[in-house]
Amino acid sequence: MTMSYPGAHDRIFLDFIAAGELRLPFDPATGQALGLHRRRAAAEWRPAAGTGTVLSFTVTRRQYAAAFPVPLVHGLIALDEGPTLIARILGAAPAEVSAGMPVRAGFDSHGLWFGPCQARVAEEPSHAAA
């Protein structure tokens, strides 16, 4: 549970997210995307397609933070480029979320979220998308 301080790698990723863009580090030698745990100064940050697959998901029912009303759905998302990350899933009721579901990235005031590929999601969807 120990947090360390964000370094350049973390700031680059978060700054792109703040600008409404999902970018991933790529190895310039191989052209392959790097997992976000790797910290390589030589990485090239390229735009991601923003599409992926839900590997797993959770539904938070206990309210931990006022900014995140419950029920709050998160997915472990495998991006099509290969890296994984955890992010909110909006635009689907908790019961509609399943492993294997294709999702697409969107942005709101908290930053990145994912929703079902086919779903029509408003610009600022409710977090309690139940």
Partner: peptide, 9 residues
């Protein structure tokens, strides 16, 4: 990414 899970709630 440090701070990511916090940002995502």
């Amino acid at each position: 990414i440090e701070g990511w899970e916090q940002q995502q709630g």
